[in-house]
Nucleic acid binder design. Structure first.
Lengths: 245, 245
DNA sequence: CGGAAAGTTGAATGAAGTCAACGAGAGTGG
DNA sequence: CCACTCTCGTTGACTTCATTCAACTTTCCG
């Protein structure tokens, strides 16, 4: 798998049109092709640690990673969820402020920091794409702030589920706004709790409550079936109260 | 005030070296000079509303503005605090996802969207600066997520005060890590509560508690005196438990 | 001076956290 | 193949911190 990917050209890359290279022309792509390398981090592995110096920037090709901060007394809050096409690292600054860990096996497309920074300077298509992606991440972070600051436990869990549905929809291109959906959760209950700013117990109780209310089914702990999205969405308490954009 | 600013050249601009134009050379600055205009929004005024289309991008020159979201049932969460040099708007997308309001009288340096977007394309110094600023904002938003998700009411208020101290320090260049500090709060208790994801009452009680503990003095509701920062910082519960960078 | 808005304080309520026990699967090794 | 263990997830009982509802005080402006 790792080896096969190592020979994969950017043209056939599954994230070619969504990652930081999305807007590259053939020339730029060839340059990136020349400096890229693939790495696979096993589930549970550390991709980066807060404060440490990173000499590679990378894109997530497959799998799921978490961005989080742990306080001195062990309290932990997730602040980012990285899925295929998401970018890791900060051009222009070597040190990261957050921990990044592999929630599943994660394959990364890596670029040496110096080389990539040079590309950003010479290739406006990469710089522009990175700005767009960062602005999108900022919007996500701010919506997340609203969730953490003002939503109830139940609303948070519903939001989490809907955001997974939405991300999956944008990846596959399918836009279901109603009907049954099956979700494979990439995160454990503990990670979901860290995502939502709740405890494991509260998170678990909310899943149970949603199941008892018939809004979800849970064939296994990691599998969620939503019989009808339309039943879940009204409770999401988005600013307009309506379905998700 | 407004008129005087309208004649101010970028060279003398108070935010010249911190705003989106910080890295511009003289040529680029001259282009910006040509398309900029100043606007002053009175305290309480709306600068932009979620969902509406913006045809100007701007920098905050003076004053303080808030970025927030209001849910259908009135719950409100602040997700950004804009101070001098901060940028408003999103190149490449006309609609904003959040409300922006003037917490004090705010003076903006505005650029027509289309013209500014052209400059971003032609002037890498502006694009690069904007990327850096956006990445910084993302870090702020993520630290804010930690505050909202995991800190107690007392810790949140302390963090809020320390972040104001820090921002003031970076503006004036003075780096006090101990000793007395005087703060003029740009926000009402209600806005602080929206910032911290708390109610007005809880926020007020925490100020009272900090006063009773001798950590702060409150000559007026809007003025906070911190006799010694070193007493406040240990309670901030940063990841390392130590003083603020 | 008077009225509204902003801020503080108190008492009661409630949602989520804590502590603790229990149950279900997954993997290991006899 | 089954027993064993270990991790993960669920459930229950109780506690706690922040919210809610309400009254009161102070400050700000017209």
């Amino acid at each position: 798998m790792n080896l096969r990917l190592a020979r994969t050209s950017c043209i056939e890359c599954p994230i070619r049109h969504r990652a930081v290279c999305a807007e590259c022309d053939d020339t730029e792509l060839a340059v990136l092709e020349g400096i890229k390398s693939y790495v696979t981090v096993p589930k549970g592995g550390r991709i980066a640690e807060a404060g440490e110096s990173l000499d590679h920037l990378s894109s997530v090709v497959s799998g799921c990673a978490t961005v989080s901060k742990t306080l001195a007394d062990g309290r932990r809050q997730m602040v980012g969820l990285l899925l295929p096409s998401d970018f890791i690292g900060r051009p222009g600054r070597a040190t990261l402020s957050f921990d990044i860990e592999a929630a599943t096996d994660v394959t990364l497309c890596r670029f040496q920091r110096r080389a990539f920074e040079a590309i950003i300077r010479s290739s406006p298509n990469v710089a522009r794409r990175l700005l767009t992606m960062t602005l999108d991440e900022l919007d996500v972070a701010r919506d997340w702030q609203v969730l953490l600051g003002r939503l109830t436990a139940r609303e948070r869990v519903i939001h989490f589920l809907l955001s997974l549905v939405r991300r999956e929809a944008t990846e596959t291109g399918a836009a279901h706004r109603s009907g049954p959906v099956r979700l494979e959760l990439p995160l454990s209950r503990e990670m979901i709790a860290d995502y939502l700013g709740l405890t494991i117990e509260t998170t678990s109780r909310q899943f149970t409550a949603l199941r008892k209310d018939g809004l979800i089914e849970t064939p296994t702990a990691r599998t969620i079936v939503v019989p009808d999205l339309l039943n879940l969405m009204p409770e999401a308490m988005d600013e307009d109260g309506g379905p998700i954009a």
